[in-house]
Each structure stands twice: as C-alpha cells, then as structure tokens.
Design a protein around this nucleic acid. Structure first.
Length: 711
DNA sequence: CAGGTACGG
DNA sequence: TGCCGTACCTG
C-alpha cells in the first residue's frame, strides 16, 4: 500500500516542483548512462557470482557423486576445498585429511589431479598423496570447468549487452546495466519517451508499481522502520531486473553443467561481492541502495575487498577497531594518515561507494606452474627435472588457451626460486620468431635456473615456479622501425642468457683481478664470446641494411649457435645423467658440498671454499678488524652483520658485482657504442584511479633495508 | 624491463 | 599450506 502523505512530505519535488508531480530521484541522463556501462550512474547494477566450494563441486560433478554427500578435495595431507555438507561436520581448511575422517567418517576424500614426472599429462592417480616427492599438483581440471562455466554465463546473456569479468577461477563480475536498461524500457514504455523539454537533467517519472516482486531473493535489510516496500524507485526496479537475470544465469549453469553458485546484486563491485557471500550456498542476495549503508555499517571492514590483508591490519591498529561503524566517525583527514589516496579510497568505500568498472577482460594474462619442495631439493639436476614438468604443464595450458590458433602467445618467461626466506627470480623474453614449443619453454627455463644458480646461494631450494606472461593482445602492437628494435633487444637478451650459462661453468677465482680486457677469458674460450658478439652484430647489421627482412632466420641461426655453445654445457650434462652438472654448479657456487666432490671444469680448477674465504671482498684480513666483536662491518652496505654471515654476505656482493659486469659487457660490447648510457625513461604516471592503489608508505621502505638478507 | 610486494581464491 | 592469478611499485 502506498501512503502518499509521508512521500509527499519527504520529497523535495512534491510541493516545490513547478509541475507538482511526484518524481523519481533519478534523471533521464542517469537512466541513459546505463546503456554505456557508465560507472557514475546511481542506477548501475553489478552482479557477482561465486561458485559454491568450487573444487569440491568439480569433483562431485566429475564423479557423478550425490552433491548432498560430504566431500573434500585433498592436496597431499591438506584439504583445499570442502563442500557444504562436509562443513556441517565442522571441517575447515585447516584440518588434515586424517583429522577430517575422524570428524566425518563418511567423508569422500578426493585428491587433486597430479602430474607425474615423465608423463604426458596430468591424471587422477590412486593414492596420489603418497607421491608428493615425485608428482606436482595440477589444477587444470578446475581451470577447464571454470572456462566452461564462464562460457555458459556468456551464453546466457545477450551478446551486445554483456560485460563479464573473470575475477578468479570461481568468481565473475557482471555489469548488467545495459541489459537492465533494455528490459526496463520494454517493461515501462513511459521511460522510452523523450524527457520533458528534451532536458536530460529532468527527473524520471515515478515508478508506477508500488510493490516489487523480489521472488525468493534474500534482501538485505535497511535497518529502518519500513516503508521501503511501499515506495520503490527506479534503482530498486533495476535491482529486481538484475536479480532476475542473475537467477536465470544461475539456473542455466545448474541446468547445463550441474553447478550451484551464489550471487550478489548491488550498485557496485564491492557491494555485489559482499552480497554473494552473504548467504551461501546456492542463494542470491540483493543489496538495494537504500540498504547499503546499514549493511556496511554493521560489518567488519576487514571483510571488504583489499582490506583483508596488511592494509586492513594497519587500519585496525591505527584506529583501534575493525568495525565500519567506528571508522565512519573518522573524518577524511584522519583516514588520510594512511596516505592521501588510500585515505580517500577508504573514506568512500566504507560509505558504499565504488566506481571501479567491470573489466570485460576474460582471457588469461599469465600462467604459472609451481612446486614447493618438502624436503627441499639440492641440485641443479633435480631442479631441471621439475622444469621439464613445468614446461609441459605450461605449454599444454597454452594450447588449451588456444594460444596456437589465436596467435595469442606469451612474451616473457619467468622463473622464481626460493631458498629459505630468500626468493629470487629471473626472466627473459620468449623469442617470437618460431612457434612456441614445450622444448623452447624448457630450454629457456633451464637457462634461467642456471642464472639463478650462478648468481647466488641456490640450495637447498624450497620452491620453484615457472611462469609465462605478457599474453595480452593477439596482434602485434610494435610495428615499423620500433618493431625491429624489440626484436633486437630480444636477440641480445637471448644471447645474454646463453652467456650466463656459459659462465656457470666458470670459477669465480679471478674475479678480483678481472678487468674488461680479460672478460672473455673469464667466460671461457674467446671464440665462444666472439661468436656471441658476431651473432648479435649480424642481427643489427641485417636491420640497418634491410629492416625487417631476414630477421627471423637470423634469430634462428643465433638460437642454434646458442644451443651449440652456451647450451652445450647443460644439454650435455643432461644427456649424461651419470655425470650430472649438479656438483659442478654446487661446487663452484657456494654449495655445502665438499670441494672434493667437484669435478674439474673444462677451463679452470674450481676453487675451494677455503680459497674463496681467503680472498674476501674488502681485501682485509679479519685479524686487522676488531675481532673481539662477533659482528663485521660491511662498508658497502653500511651495516653491521653477524660474523657468521660474512661468507654469505661476501657471496652476495660477489654475485651482485658479477651480474653488473655481465650486464655492462652486454651493453657496451656488441655495438661498440660510445654513448652507452641510456637515460632512464620518464614515468608516465601509471595507475587507474581505483582501489587503494598501494599500501604506499611505511612498510615498503623498511622492507628495502633488509637488503640481501632477511631477519 | 627486472625484480619485488600485496591481495585474493 | 600449496598452487595459483592479478595489479602495482621501484630502481
């Protein structure tokens, strides 16, 4: 029942409006903006869909298990997903598989698929949890289902009016504004007419209906007496329509693929996401604009996207609360103690404001294959074995992504390495000349690992990961003369990785005396070094004479040379497992293996650890320093460190110097360039105006102080 | 661009 | 915890 009296009393347009006609709070312009997915209109409608216990559902669907049976997905000894029936037994992600079985004897435990060394593809192996040492987990089955679901969602939305963002493997955002606009126009013809006086800033007519049918959707309360049901405005109507769409999408997913999911509908992404988590599983929640403030004010702000981590902790400790309600009392300038941008962002966010757009991006930007080692691995050869799996994994996923057909291919490859608390990474461009292959990924990865190994302490290694990225656009964006320069850089980068692996076979013994003149000697026979430079020069010359002609062939030749020379050491070793390169690397570069375990190198005898410690970085015998202290002073870092860490610290500087010299050589030698200083490019002020942008400030600067070591 | 951090599922 | 994926910052 509508009660006109309160409405008239509270509406600014009832009495004072020139035409004395009740109006909507919204304008024709705001309605019109729906068509273009404007982030500014208050009528905007965003949905968030979240698959329920996704990995667990994947398994029930795959195995045809009754979804009311308790099921958990196991990864080694842990659980990574627990379906809702199983959650009723108090199972959480923190319990182990054996504990889970005690709590719920009927629990179905399904281990994730794994990839076994030497096999072509991942598979669901029996008793996979026993093979943590030889298998790596594969989440590929879930990625595939994720793709099917995304496709299904897109198919259930009108092509021209959809905007879908894949937020994670089991979440999507949808901007339903455009579709809602059409449905609105169909359903309420009075909205289709031109605005009075053709003035878009005119207010819309009032909603003709007094009661909206929210079906079975959960409605977030407003916290007010009532009256909201009786007085809908167009934003409420938009939400109803959006909610219908979400219900249809969910039904379609269930019908076609058998998955249930939860949904949230609201005016922006932040609220929509909170909505989808409000009631689970298999339900949807609408947060009407009029309910947003109340909904938020009763919540912990740590539940809000971007406040679940360090930033959230910082806010909690700064204001001594985790409640939105308390934070709402803080004026803007107080929040700005977190930084101007972060403060403003937070101020708006806890008031339910979020103008971030739904990014129509649906394709993947990078992919990663990783393994944590328990126990840690201790040799180059072991690492290389895992790289083979990683390369196969990533390559097959590239193929699944349609990389081969689409011309969408990754541009860079990246290797991450963790040793204790220290992590290091190396990356290189992926040569774009020839088709992507597993072997190519493997070779690149191997070189990257070799670089990591020669660059510092590498063993024992607790984690290794290989990723490819820079997928982006299918079509080339660097063309003309610039197009070649990119190629040239890649060629040089390839050479540099090759050279680095050559240096892997070299002892650091002469590092203190080495100068530019004997650098080639340091890296091995002069001929190898020369061939590198010759190859690079050939590429550059080819460009100068006829830009863009034979570049690809040139690149191929260079790659071959690379395989012949620099790659030889590694490939060789690999083909003869009886004499693996592990000790070779370990012995030369700070392993804990005794010097006696090291075979001679082709070039120089390896120095013992003792020898290395006898020629310290600063050419001063320890005796001349105050040896009563158990610390030493590094005048390069300007810091006192435990004497026990001196050897490692010296290694650190050695590695630093070495990599610097290598890079310098690479820059100056191939072109014999006289003005080699390329001034650092200016900053094009990056960044979308959106979320906190960053944690800015304090903790980052402090992290830097830790330098090469960690507490 | 290389290397790192933060945040999220 | 392990295995991811994205975005951003800094030198």
């Amino acid at each position: 029942m509508s009660s006109p009296a309160p409405f008239l009393a509270s509406s600014p347009f009832s009495i004072t409006s020139p035409r004395r006609i009740p109006k909507s709070r919204f304008t024709y312009k705001q309605l019109h903006q729906l068509k273009t997915f404007s982030t500014q209109t208050p009528l905007r409608v965003i949905a968030h869909i979240d698959l329920d216990a996704f990995y667990a559902q994947c398994e029930t669907v795959r195995l045809g298990i009754d979804p009311s049976k308790p099921l958990a997905v196991q990864q080694w000894q842990g659980l990574i997903a627990i379906n809702y029936p199983a959650r009723a037994y108090g199972l959480s992600r923190h319990v182990t598989s054996t504990e889970a079985l005690k709590l719920c004897p009927d629990l179905i435990l399904q281990h994730v698929a794994t990839w076994k060394e030497g096999e072509e593809k991942w598979a669901y192996h029996e008793e996979a949890y026993k093979h943590i040492a030889t298998h790596k987990v594969s989440l590929d089955p879930y990625r595939m289902e994720s793709r099917r679901i995304l496709k299904c969602i897109k198919e259930s939305l009108p092509e021209k009016e959809q905007r879908v963002e894949k937020a994670s493997i089991d979440e999507v955002f949808m901007d339903l504004s455009a579709q809602v606009h059409t449905r609105l126009s169909e359903r309420y013809p009075e909205l289709s007419g031109p605005p009075p006086y053709d003035d878009l800033s005119e207010y819309l007519p009032k909603v003709p209906t007094t009661v909206l049918d929210w079906k079975a959707d959960a409605l977030v309360e407003t916290g007010e007496e009532d009256g909201e049901v009786a007085d809908p405005d167009w934003d409420d109507v938009c939400m109803v329509i959006a909610s219908e769409i979400v219900r249809d999408v969910r039904a379609h997913i269930k019908e076609q693929l058998g998955y249930t999911c939860s949904g949230g509908v609201a005016r922006n992404k932040m609220l929509a996401k909170l909505g989808s988590g409000y009631k689970k599983p298999n339900q949807q929640t609408v947060i009407r604009n009029r309910a947003a403030e109340y909904f938020l004010s009763n919540m912990k702000f740590t539940k809000i996207r971007m406040l679940g981590g360090k930033l959230g902790d910082e806010v909690v400790s700064m204001f001594g609360t985790d409640k939105v309600k308390d934070l709402l009392e803080q004026p803007l300038d107080q929040l700005k103690k977190l930084g101007d941008d972060t403060g403003s962002w937070l101020y708006n966010t806890i008031r339910g404001e979020d103008h971030s757009e739904v990014n129509p991006r649906t394709q993947i930007k990078s992919m990663l294959s990783a393994k944590s080692f328990r126990p840690a691995i201790n040799s180059f050869e072991q690492g290389v074995r895992w790289l083979r799996i990683f390369a196969a994994d990533i390559f097959s996923r590239c193929v699944e992504e349609g990389v081969l057909e689409n011309k969408r291919r990754p541009k860079t490859i990246n290797l991450h390495h963790r040793q204790g608390t220290q992590t290091r990474s190396r990356q290189s461009p992926i040569p774009q000349g020839k088709p992507l292959s597993e072997q190519m990924l493997f070779d690149l990865a191997k070189n990257l690992l070799a670089q990591v190994v020669v660059d510092g302490r590498a063993w024992p290694c607790a984690n290794l990961s290989l990723s490819v990225g820079g997928f982006e656009d299918g079509v080339t964006n660097n063309k003309g003369i610039g197009g070649f320069l990119v190629r040239g850089d890649e060629a040089k980068a390839m050479l540099s990785t090759g050279r680095s692996s050559v240096s892997g076979g070299e002892p650091p013994a002469k590092r203190r005396k080495r100068t530019k003149g004997n650098i080639a000697n340091f890296f091995g026979p002069p001929s190898e070094k020369k061939r590198d430079f010759d190859a690079a020069r050939a590429v550059l010359r080819a460009h100068q004479e006829s830009p863009g002609s034979n570049i690809e062939e040139e690149l191929d030749e260079i790659e071959e040379e690379q395989d012949d020379s620099s790659g030889a050491l590694l490939d060789d070793a690999e083909s003869r497992p009886s004499t693996p390169p592990i000790e070779h690397y370990d012995g030369l570069y700070r392993s804990d293996t005794p010097p006696s375990a090291q075979p001679p190198t082709p070039f120089d005898p390896p120095p013992s650890h003792q020898a290395r410690n006898d020629t310290p970085q600063h050419s001063k015998p320890p005796a001349l320093h105050q040896k009563t202290l158990d610390t030493f002073f590094c005048d390069r870092c300007n810091v006192h460190l435990p004497i026990a860490e001196k050897a490692e610290h010296d290694d650190y500087h050695f590695a630093l110097d070495l990599s610097k010299e290598i890079r310098q050589e690479e820059r100056s030698a191939p072109t014999e360039n006289t003005n080699r200083k390329t001034p650092t490019a200016q900053k094009p002020t990056r960044g979308r105006g959106r979320p906190p942008g960053s944690g800015k400030g304090v903790e980052k600067g402090q992290a830097k102080l830790a330098f090469g070591r960690q507490a």
